[in-house]
């Protein structure tokens, strides 16, 4: 286990290193000089220009600049947003909370509703199962931005139950503001998770070892809990994990749609404003979160399934 974790961490660091290089390199190659962004296109005296170049290391070679940036990143310094004249770390710090809350609320909906519906569908009567299948088919076809627009219209404009824009103040108000965004973000994923759960539980019900448990006279709820659900938890956990990982980037769409002051929405703005330092910083944070989530899935998978030699994920 220790060896596995060590190896996985090494791979993680290598991936992040290459990814950070890719992010930095891509934006370095982008056309347009940061000086133009700094000066807003006005002509400035050469000594001011030199000062700016000095300050932002603009005249250093690429690798030196990458190294300076990376060593800053390791210390938690993600550089400075040129248009905002603000530390990228500060910008991220102000916005990461909203994104985190949104993703966690969505994850909770996906796990409770998605896994719950899947189990009910697999174990319930035919009519219940059909209902689950129908609901998941409809919601599977609803991309996040489409769900956002529909939810805003129905629950915001028509019924007026929830606010359609903004973040809100205080816990309860924030929760109210996050409800529709989380539902929009969850729509497709709930359907996917419900389907996979349903299939996994059904497959497990047909397994011979479940028949053994029945043949021993165990109560049905014990058979279901100890054998069917325990074993179905392996594929379910993988899919739930992959789905939650995918939310990290998708949150940008929903945050933008609902005017939430989160990381993703700000990344989109920064990309439009050519605020490269911010784009680099937020991208790196998102990639980091995405990769870490994937490592957690791998570890969970290895813990749940003793047959797996650590480090390989089935499916």
């Amino acid at each position: 286990m220790i060896a596995f974790l060590g190896k996985r961490m090494a791979m993680l660091l290598a991936t992040l290193l290459v990814a950070s290089f890719a992010i930095y390199g891509a934006l370095y190659l982008a056309p347009g000089s940061p000086i133009a962004a700094l000066t807003g296109g006005r002509s400035v005296p050469p000594e001011v220009l030199a000062q700016l170049e000095e300050r932002y290391h603009l005249n250093e070679p690429f690798l030196t600049r990458y190294w300076l940036w990376l060593s800053g990143v390791v210390r938690g310094d993600l550089g400075e947003s040129i248009p905002l004249r603000q530390d990228v770390s500060t910008i991220i710090g102000q916005r990461i909370g909203v994104t985190l809350q949104l993703v966690m609320l969505t994850a909770a909906i996906i796990i409770i509703v998605g896994v719950g519906l899947g189990i009910v569908g697999a174990l319930g009567r035919k009519s219940v199962d059909f209902g689950v299948l129908l609901a998941s088919t409809v919601s599977a076809a609803l991309p996040a931005f489409a769900a956002a627009v529909l939810l805003q219209f129905v629950f915001g404009v028509m019924l007026g139950w929830f606010p359609v824009l903004g973040t809100g103040d205080g816990f309860v108000d924030q929760l109210r503001h996050l409800t529709l965004p989380a539902l929009a973000l969850a729509a497709t994923s709930v359907a996917l998770v419900a389907r996979v759960t349903r299939t996994a539980v059904r497959d497990e019900l047909d397994k011979e070892h479940v028949q053994t448990a029945v043949s021993r006279g165990l109560p049905w709820r014990d058979v279901v809990r100890r054998h069917v659900l325990r074993n179905a938890a392996i594929p379910i956990t993988t899919v739930v994990g992959i789905t939650i990982a995918s939310l990290i980037a998708l949150a940008a769409v929903v945050e933008t749609a609902f005017g939430l002051n989160g990381l993703g929405a700000y990344l989109v703005q920064a990309a439009q404003n050519k605020d490269f330092a911010t784009v680099q910083g937020i991208s790196l944070v998102l990639v980091f979160a995405f990769v870490i989530t994937n490592v957690i899935i791998d570890i969970a998978y290895a813990i749940l399934d003793p047959r797996v030699t650590l480090g390989s994920r089935a499916q």
Partner: peptide, 25 residues
């Protein structure tokens, strides 16, 4: 597979946002 692993670390939407930042939307 190393290259593939690195690309895997970028969700599609994120890569598209980065591309917009680099090449313009």
């Amino acid at each position: 597979s190393v290259v593939i692993d690195v690309v895997f670390a970028f969700p599609g939407i994120l890569l598209a946002i980065l591309a917009a930042a680099v090449f313009g939307p």
